[in-house]
Lab assay of single mutants.
Amino acid sequence: MEQATVKWFNAEKGFGFIERENGDDVFVHFSAIQGDGFKSLDEGQAVTFDVEEGQRGPQAANVQKA
């Protein structure tokens, strides 16, 4: 698992990007966020996640709020 920071997340559209420590951004979809209830992330929030290869490149999976 990697630890990184949420760059931005649009709760209405259900997706955003996580900024990795190496500077690369990773796409995150609300369905990858672990937990119950409304799944959203806040800008600047610390998260841990795995990286999977998606249809359009790397994307976050198993996202957990740190």
Rank of each mutant, 00 (worst) to 15 (best):
M1D: 08
M1H: 13
Q3P: 08
Q3A: 11
A4S: 09
A4T: 03
A4F: 05
V6H: 01
V6K: 01
K7F: 08
K7Y: 04
W8K: 02
W8R: 00
F9D: 04
N10Q: 05
A11D: 07
A11I: 11
A11E: 08
E12R: 12
E12A: 13
E12H: 12
K13T: 07
K13S: 07
F15S: 01
G16C: 07
G16S: 00
F17P: 01
I18L: 15
I18N: 01
I18M: 04
E19A: 14
E19M: 15
E19S: 15
R20H: 06
E21W: 12
G23A: 09
D25H: 14
D25M: 15
V26W: 04
V26T: 04
F27D: 01
V28S: 00
H29W: 04
H29D: 02
H29K: 01
H29M: 05
F30G: 04
F30W: 15
F30H: 09
S31R: 07
S31I: 05
A32T: 07
I33T: 02
Q34I: 15
Q34G: 08
Q34T: 10
Q34M: 13
Q34D: 08
G35C: 12
G35E: 09
G35P: 02
D36M: 11
D36L: 11
D36C: 14
G37Y: 05
F38N: 08
F38L: 09
F38R: 08
L41K: 01
L41Y: 01
L41I: 06
E43H: 14
E43S: 15
G44Y: 04
G44V: 02
G44M: 04
G44H: 06
G44R: 05
Q45R: 02
Q45H: 06
A46T: 13
A46R: 14
A46V: 14
A46Y: 13
V47H: 01
T48C: 12
T48F: 14
F49T: 01
F49K: 01
D50P: 03
D50S: 14
D50L: 13
V51D: 02
E52F: 13
E53M: 15
G54Q: 05
G54A: 06
Q55F: 13
R56Q: 10
R56K: 12
R56D: 06
G57V: 02
G57T: 03
P58A: 08
P58C: 08
P58M: 09
Q59V: 10
Q59P: 07
A60I: 01
A60G: 04
A61Y: 09
A61I: 13
A61F: 10
N62C: 08
N62Y: 06
V63T: 03
V63C: 06
V63H: 01
V63P: 02
Q64V: 13
Q64M: 11
K65W: 09
K65S: 10
K65Y: 11
A66C: 13
